[in-house]
Design a protein around this nucleic acid. Structure first.
Lengths: 113, 113
DNA sequence: TATAAATATCGCGAAATACCGATATGATAT
DNA sequence: ATATCATATCGGTATTTCGCGATATTTATA
């Protein structure tokens, strides 16, 4: 995803629409809105590492019910679209919502759809 | 599309995301925001018939540059999703935005994404 | 009735997406 | 070094989407 601008262009928006055109991926985005209540304490508590709210792939997988490989791929698609960001910490990869992009997306909808 | 409710559910939203996950279909929705400036006077002036802002398929086609059959299919997809509504008048089928659904969609994004 | 115009539908091959299991990679711990 | 997690990537099949030309349908008109 192109970064550093505060307005999405059509191409970026279409990529977000594609990312959200799958129920499982929408579920993931929704679950990540409230990691504390949707995941176990260990899964998301990474205050130390400066990535608060991040959830590791295996915990996301166990909630979605799809395979590990598909979960990983879906998270890549969400990452590509800019809807989430990730950070590798040790052997875990944590994903969390990218609220900045999500806000831009909301704005795009209001202005361009 | 299910009608008559004022909140979209996830399934309806995903259908809208699919409809918008194509640049040409996004273009169509955008063009229909301002029929007066985007289309010739004849194309959209149907005050008499109670379908103001409607634009006929062939005019939409000539703006998109895609084939007639694809244009017709894309309009069906947009119609299915609820983003547009249509009315057949004589030999023409007029399409226009369904602002009610679009508002519900905006609201869905704000609440559920 | 015959013709023409506008639109919808059908049937197609090509490309993309949905998911999966198997395997590779990278980090940690023994 | 090796065994073990966590995750990513690869290769596959099945399904869906893309976009087209050809054809069918509907309406208006001669």
């Amino acid at each position: 995803m192109k970064q550093g601008f505060d307005q999405l262009d059509d191409e970026q928006a279409v990529e977000i629409f594609k990312a959200l055109s799958n129920q499982t991926r929408v579920n993931i985005i929704q679950m990540l809105k409230d990691p504390v209540s949707n995941f176990s304490a260990q899964a998301h508590a990474i205050k130390d590492e400066g990535f608060e709210g991040g959830v590791c792939v295996s915990d996301i997988q166990s909630k979605t019910g799809i395979s590990q490989s598909t979960t990983s791929q879906y998270l890549s698609i969400l990452l590509q679209s800019g809807l989430v960001e990730m950070k590798r910490i040790g052997q875990w990869t944590y994903y969390r919502r990218n609220e900045k992009t999500i806000k831009q997306f909301e704005k795009y909808i209001g202005l361009n759809i």
